[in-house]
Structure formats: C-alpha cells, structure tokens
Amino acid sequence: MNLRDRVALNIQDLRRARGLSQEELAHRANVSRGHMGKVENARFAASLDLLERIAKALKVDAAELFTKR
C-alpha cells in the first residue's frame, strides 16, 4: 500500500469511528465535500496544510494519518 492510499484509508477510518459524515469533516477542515472525497479515495494528494486541518478536525495528531494500521 502506498502512502497516499494509507492516508486516505486512515482518514476514512478515523472519520467513521467518530461518526462524522464526509460533509461534516470537510466543513470542519474548511474544504469542499468533493475535495474531501477525492482525498479519502486517494485520487488527490493532499497538501501538508490540508492534512494538518483534517487531523485537527478529527482531533488526532497529524502523525496518526500516516500510521500503518
């Protein structure tokens, strides 16, 4: 699994574990729902700034987005 796929899967898993919709996470991270969908489906390489906002919205350390599960 490449890093982009791992990050995408981790975002999905963390979002679902918190009971958030893609739309709610996108709102909290200040990005469109469509853009969030592309990040979660590994069709877009998110910037570090965006990953930091997503981690903050999920209330996790940004390093958790990269952790092998």
Rank of each mutant, 00 (worst) to 15 (best):
A46V: 07
A29L: 00
R4S: 05
D49K: 08
N30V: 07
R69S: 15
L50Y: 12
D49C: 02
D13L: 11
L50W: 10
V31L: 14
Q12A: 11
A57I: 00
A17D: 11
A62T: 12
A57N: 04
N2F: 05
A62G: 05
L20T: 06
D61L: 05
L48V: 14
L9R: 12
L50A: 09
L25T: 01
R53E: 15
R4L: 05
A55Q: 07
D49T: 14
E64M: 09
R16A: 13
A42D: 08
D13S: 14
E52G: 07
M36W: 04
A29R: 02
N30H: 11
Q22E: 15
R4C: 05
L50H: 09
N41A: 13
R4I: 06
L25M: 08
N2M: 05
R18L: 09
L20F: 03
K38D: 06
N2D: 15
D49R: 12
I11Q: 00
V31W: 10
E40D: 04
D61A: 09
I11G: 00
E23T: 06
E24C: 11
L58M: 01
A63L: 12
R43D: 13
N2R: 08
A62F: 02
F66N: 15
L65M: 06
G19M: 06
R69C: 12
D5Q: 02
A46S: 13
K68V: 08
L3Y: 03
A42M: 01
T67C: 15
V7Q: 01
R15G: 06
E52F: 09
D61H: 07
N41L: 14
N41I: 02
N2T: 11
A63P: 00
K38G: 01
R28S: 14
L58A: 01
T67D: 14
E52N: 09
E52W: 11
N41M: 12
M36K: 02
N10G: 02
Q12C: 13
D49L: 08
L48G: 10
L14H: 10
I54D: 10
V39C: 00
